[in-house]
């Protein structure tokens, strides 16, 4: 028993150490290029945008009677007065609205696609680097190298997403005096969304050894998955009795990542449903059909991990460091 425990501890320590070195290598590789500055620039722009927000009116509005009509109105000012909106909600809720709007895009489609764009070249560049020679002449299996790389990049992107979420929340608090919530639950959903497509990007990078191919393929794949996800839910909402249509949209829906489902989950995690409506079909499906958020998370993440393992399998026979 004690020996098994010691062996398990040693394996866990080894995994943690290997992940630490991969993380260091990946971080140094990301930070030495322009990609990190693009992502940091995007975070800075969002933070500066938050600094231009100003709200007036009561903090929390008490509803009056059955009609739920606010007693007082406030004003939301964005971009130093360029955009003004009359508020039918309290100032605290208005700050939360602005934060939710930023998080829905920043941790949603724009954030995921931007991170995919910045990470698409990492594996093809790695295969031409000195790191590849060092790693591939060591006794570490290549699939393990790829898996460590997969998790290292997810951790880096999640850290950046956390920075985005916290810096926007902090700057909104600074200028308005109201804390909109950290939005860290949304960061977890972002991590799953990114992981699902980063695995695919790694596979294309390993097959083609081209950054451009990995970038184009992963962005197109995101669009296809979004389309499949929405069409499956639409089919369930309107054409539920047609067996052929059900199979045609159901099979790819269950196999592929589910960006639309994850977007709904993100909205729920950051509390955006009180400000924005989702697709009516998605809301319906949440009640009627088989939209199960946890199943969407598990299947999307499993897809990404499977793709990363396939990339590792592909690298088994990849030749490094030759010029015919």
């Amino acid at each position: 028993m004690r020996r098994t425990l010691a062996k398990t501890c040693s394996l866990v320590c080894d995994f943690a150490q290997s992940l630490k070195y991969s993380l260091l290598d990946e971080w140094q590789s990301v930070s030495s290029g322009r990609h990190l500055w693009v992502l940091l620039g995007a975070i800075l722009i969002a933070t500066c945008f938050c600094l231009t927000v100003h709200v007036t009116g009561p903090g929390i509005i008490q509803a009056e009677g059955e009609l739920d009509v606010p007693a007082q109105k406030g004003e939301l000012v964005i971009l130093f007065g360029l955009v003004r909106a009359e508020l039918f909600r309290g100032a605290q809720e208005a700050v939360h609205l602005v934060h939710c709007w930023l998080l829905r895009w920043g941790l949603g489609p724009i954030g995921v696609l931007l991170c995919l764009t910045c990470s698409a070249g990492l594996l093809p560049l790695f295969l031409h680097s000195g790191s590849a020679i060092l790693l591939f002449t060591s006794p570490v299996a290549r699939w393990r190298v790829v898996v460590y790389k997969y998790f290292a990049v997810i951790l880096i992107m999640t850290a950046l997403a956390t920075g985005f979420s916290l810096s926007t929340a902090a700057s909104l608090t600074l200028v308005t005096g109201y804390w909109p919530g950290s939005g860290l639950g949304g960061v977890l959903v972002f991590a799953v969304s990114f992981a699902a497509f980063w695995g695919f990007s790694m596979l294309i990078g390993a097959l083609s050894r081209s950054s451009a191919a990995a970038l184009v393929a992963s962005v197109l794949f995101w669009l296809v998955c979004y389309g499949v996800n929405v069409s499956h839910i639409s089919q369930k909402s309107y054409l539920s009795e047609q067996m052929t249509a059900s199979v045609l949209t159901g099979l790819p829906y269950w196999c592929l990542p589910k960006p639309a489902d994850l977007l709904v989950l993100l909205s729920n995690f950051i509390g955006a449903q009180q400000h924005f409506t989702n697709f009516p079909e998605l809301l319906d499906s949440g009640n009627v059909f088989e939209f199960n958020p946890w199943w969407s998370v598990i299947s999307s993440f499993s897809f990404g991990l499977t793709m990363a393992l396939l990339a590792g399998w592909e690298l088994r026979r990849v030749e490094v460091g030759f010029c015919p």
Binding site: S18, S29, G321
Partner: peptide, 28 residues
């Protein structure tokens, strides 16, 4: 096995000590 590649192709973003430590770790 220890291997030195032609043109000493190394990961450019590491420090010398960090790289030697990483290599030692990779080799057990």
């Amino acid at each position: 096995v220890g291997y030195v590649s032609e043109n000493a192709l190394l990961p450019a973003h590491w420090s010398v000590e960090g790289l030697v430590r990483w290599s030692g770790f990779l080799h057990g």
